[in-house]
Design a protein around this nucleic acid. Sequence first.
DNA 1: CCCGTACTACGATGCTTATCGTACGAGTCG
DNA 2: CGACTCGTACGATAAGCATCGTAGTACGGG
Lengths: 117, 117
Amino acid sequence: MTIPAVSSRDLPHPARAEIRLEGVLHALSDPLRLQIVRELAAVDDELSCSHFDLPVTKSTTTHHFRVLRESGVIQQIYRGTAKMNGLRRDDLDGLFPGLLDALLDAAARQAVRLGDR
Amino acid sequence: MTIPAVSSRDLPHPARAEIRLEGVLHALSDPLRLQIVRELAAVDDELSCSHFDLPVTKSTTTHHFRVLRESGVIQQIYRGTAKMNGLRRDDLDGLFPGLLDALLDAAARQAVRLGDR
DNA sequence: CCCGTACTACGATGCTTATCGTACGAGTCG
DNA sequence: CGACTCGTACGATAAGCATCGTAGTACGGG
């Protein structure tokens, strides 16, 4: 076999059927969390928590990632000491076709409209 | 002439350019407000506040409509004693093309997926 | 085995929000 | 005018949430 893959500690994720639209919208209504999701969508890969350079402490960062995970927007998995984050694109697209893309497009347009950056 | 149109008292609305995606998402992350928006979209017309039969008091209803108005999702206008509510579809579509439809479709799918009603 | 890195858990704090009740204002109709 | 309807304003309350700091756990490498 290739690899024991995942570490022992694992994190609670909602099943696809448990994901609620209201929860997703609430999760994305925070600027920091929306930014995180935009970056994850841009790279289309998993990123460690520490990759993100957010203007808050680590405690707060942990909190935001948890909100995203518990709402079903991202999946998290430990790899060594790092905790990798990935968009649950398949689940979101399955539940709400076109929504994620519309949201990402909307966020991109607003970024351009305001000072971008 | 047809009608003096609007009553004297008018309500503060954000201009199109002031509408923020985060605010829209936050407004729609409440089940009651999402339901209101779904009904407004379904009839594609203005509806009075009292048309909605929400499981909360009138005070709370007023509060929710204000959140929707201040976030730019709906427009409100007094007509006699009634206060009419309409979706700001043009503004939302102009700012975030496809977003509103994706959100409404997502809400409809979820309604079907859960017990509907 | 010890240390450094990555992240968490917990408690505190202050802000926002959802909710209500009561009292009030604006308009319509008799 | 007077009564009724629709909706508001204001204050209270309780819950939720974003934020921090500190202390701690898990993992990997020397």
